[in-house]
Design a protein around this nucleic acid. Structure first.
Lengths: 193, 193
DNA sequence: AGGGCTCCATACGGCAGAGTATGGAAAAGC
DNA sequence: GCTTTTCCATACTCTGCCGTATGGAGCCCT
């Protein structure tokens, strides 16, 4: 075992490959995760890769699983943080601005929803998130089916936002126009206290 | 010139290739549009393809342009059809159920928003559609910026719906649950008369 | 009937990425 | 100090697609 993990130029670990894979996903999408380009990007050859992983597929599997855990922790953290359900919902949207890489990865994963390794993950993540959102709407006094509908609607807005962002069809994050739009969204979707 | 266009086994035209390309896009995405697989799918060889097109790129260009025209006609038709702006907005959502292929193509294009040939097209289409939606909201009495925000929001809901549909995370179209959800969406986003 | 045009088949060269094989250097263990 | 294990480089093979070259079958025209 190397002592301090990623200092300068010790030997690489599987985690390093997974992390770089996630960066590539965020930048160029799932399809761009290829062994040889990835190796070049890390200044190394694929001889290393096939020592740590059995195939490209297994790298993807590991990287995606790691991302999912990270995202689940984020969600739970945001849940425990705030008592008021309305604040939780608002923070869900505001969280898009922070957590840059995580959302870029998610956006890229949405674009690859057909991929057999990606689809089940997306299903789990979306279900988890919508459940939390529905929970908040329920606490705001909606009956169950209304809360579910509103949660789906809210999550759709989030997904649509990611899509428009990918198309650069949305005002720059943390600009004044963006804040105005966000206010409009909150006002429309989230009932007043 | 062959007499009746596509009867049994006359000779193929460029339009046939474009049409098949759009089908592949709808089924498997933009990246799946490859010359040789496409040729196999049509029971022919690529010798034919390179007679009609100079490259894979030009096929995509033509096919996408054709789709855009078709879509623009659809939009204008839906605009002229209904006088009441509220009905126009509702029909925008309901149109998702009909026009199956067109929306499957659009959904696939959204997934390939990074593609250099796709991105400008998506920008144009989204802008056109949002403009029409904003117009309707304006007619419903909103001021300009509010209408723009609401249009962006509405279009985000549509995009998010397509995404969830790609993940099969949405009740089956024209099922009772779907109709209930659609009612909720309309009620939430579109002001009463 | 013969020449020309249209459309397609076949065969080729080239590139890029997935895996495999094998050897070598450097650290770890004894 | 010598072996063993760890990690990586190099050099293959194989597959799939792009684009080109070339020829050939069928029709169109005169």
């Amino acid at each position: 075992m190397p002592e301090a993990a990623s200092n300068k130029r010790t030997t690489l670990s599987a985690a390093d490959w997974e992390q770089e894979a996630l960066r590539v996903i965020a930048e160029q999408g799932v399809a761009a995760v290829a062994v040889e380009p990835l190796a070049r990007r890390m200044g190394i050859t694929k001889g290393s890769f096939y020592w740590h992983f059995s195939s490209r597929e297994s790298l993807l599997e590991q990287a995606l699983l790691g991302w999912e855990e990270h995202d689940a922790r984020n969600l739970n953290a945001s849940l425990g943080e705030l008592d008021c359900p309305r604040d939780r919902l608002i923070s869900f949207f505001r969280r898009v601005s922070r957590e840059g890489l995580t959302h870029e990865v998610y956006s890229a994963l949405c674009a690859a929803a057909d991929h057999p390794q990606v689809k089940p993950l997306l299903d789990r993540v979306a279900a988890r998130r919508m459940q939390h959102i529905a929970q908040a709407f329920t606490e705001l006094g909606m009956d169950e089916t209304t809360a579910e509908h509103r949660a789906r609607l809210t999550y759709s807005v989030y997904l649509g936002f990611l899509q428009l962002q990918r198309q650069s069809q949305v005002p720059a994050l943390s600009s004044q126009q963006f804040e105005a739009y966000l206010d409009h969204v909150i006002e429309t979707l989230i009932p007043e206290a």
